[in-house]
Simulated scan of single mutants.
Amino acid sequence: MPLGTAINNIGITLGRGGQLARTVGAVAKLIAKEGKSATLKLPFGKVRLISKNCSVTVGQVGNIGVNQKSLGRARSKCWLGKCPIVRGVVMHPVDHPHGGGEGRAPIGRKKPATPWGYPALGRKSRKRNKYSDNLILRRWSK
């Protein structure tokens, strides 16, 4: 495969199937090939090494204009399987950590939380010293 090829549906490990660049309009570029590994630039700017034996699909994922389609009315989103999103602040305290209080109360905690009480919005969820850290060459591009 020549350098600069646009690819999608990239497998990270052999025999596992595609895990990267699978969404609508997503495309990664092949930057370099050396030894048994290849260097990819992923859609959000991350530069990563993968094995040359992994499976990929050449090209870009189609149906790019899916987000521009007007659904027409509120209920049609439910037909697509998208549930209504209810804010945690308007729930009861048994349902969400943000719930409860008198009237329109703010969240009673110092930082926002998930429905299960874990920190939300900004907390890093990736494990430290993960096995694939040495395969990631650059996390974000500016």
Rank of each mutant, 00 (worst) to 15 (best):
R123Y: 08
S37E: 14
K69S: 05
R109Y: 01
T114H: 10
H96M: 03
G99R: 02
R138N: 07
K52C: 15
N134P: 05
G17Q: 02
K111A: 10
A120F: 06
K111T: 12
A32Y: 08
I31S: 03
G81R: 00
G101M: 02
A26S: 14
K142M: 03
V90D: 11
T57G: 00
G117V: 04
N134R: 13
A32R: 11
V90R: 10
S51A: 11
R87G: 08
C78P: 00
A32K: 11
P119Q: 02
N53V: 06
L14I: 12
Q68V: 08
G99E: 02
A6E: 15
F44S: 09
L20D: 01
G59N: 05
G122Y: 03
V61G: 04
K41F: 00
A32F: 07
S55F: 11
N67G: 09
P112V: 01
I136D: 05
C83H: 15
A74P: 03
R16M: 13
W116M: 12
C54D: 07
I64P: 09
A26E: 15
V27F: 09
P84F: 05
A74T: 10
N8Y: 06
K29G: 00
K33Y: 06
N134T: 11
G25H: 08
V47M: 09
I136G: 00
G117F: 07
K82A: 09
N9Q: 10
N53L: 14
Y118Q: 12
G117A: 01
G117S: 05
A26F: 08
V61N: 13
L40Q: 03
Q60I: 15
A105G: 03
I64L: 11
V86D: 00
L49I: 01
V56F: 13
E34H: 12
K41E: 15
N9M: 07
C78Q: 14
G108T: 01
A6G: 12
V27Q: 13
G100S: 04
L20Y: 08
I12K: 13
I10Q: 03
G15S: 07
K142R: 11
I136Y: 01
G100P: 02
K127Q: 09
Q19E: 15
H98V: 00
W79L: 14
I10P: 01
K130V: 08
R16I: 08
S37I: 08
C54I: 13
A28L: 07
T39I: 13
R109E: 05
R123L: 07
R22S: 02
T23I: 04
G99Q: 01
S132G: 03
M91P: 00
K52D: 08
K52V: 11
G100R: 00
G35K: 05
A6H: 10
G122H: 02
H92P: 00
G59T: 06
G62V: 07
K52R: 14
K111V: 12
A21T: 14
R128D: 12
E102C: 05
W79A: 15
V66K: 14
A105Q: 07
S70I: 12
K33M: 15
T5F: 01
P119C: 00
I85E: 11
A120N: 06
R73E: 10
D133T: 06
G18H: 09
F44L: 14
I7Y: 07
N9C: 10
A6T: 09
G25R: 05
L30T: 07
A113Y: 08
R109W: 06
R48A: 09
S125W: 10
N67D: 11
R123I: 05
K69T: 10
N129F: 15
I10C: 02
I136C: 12
N9W: 14
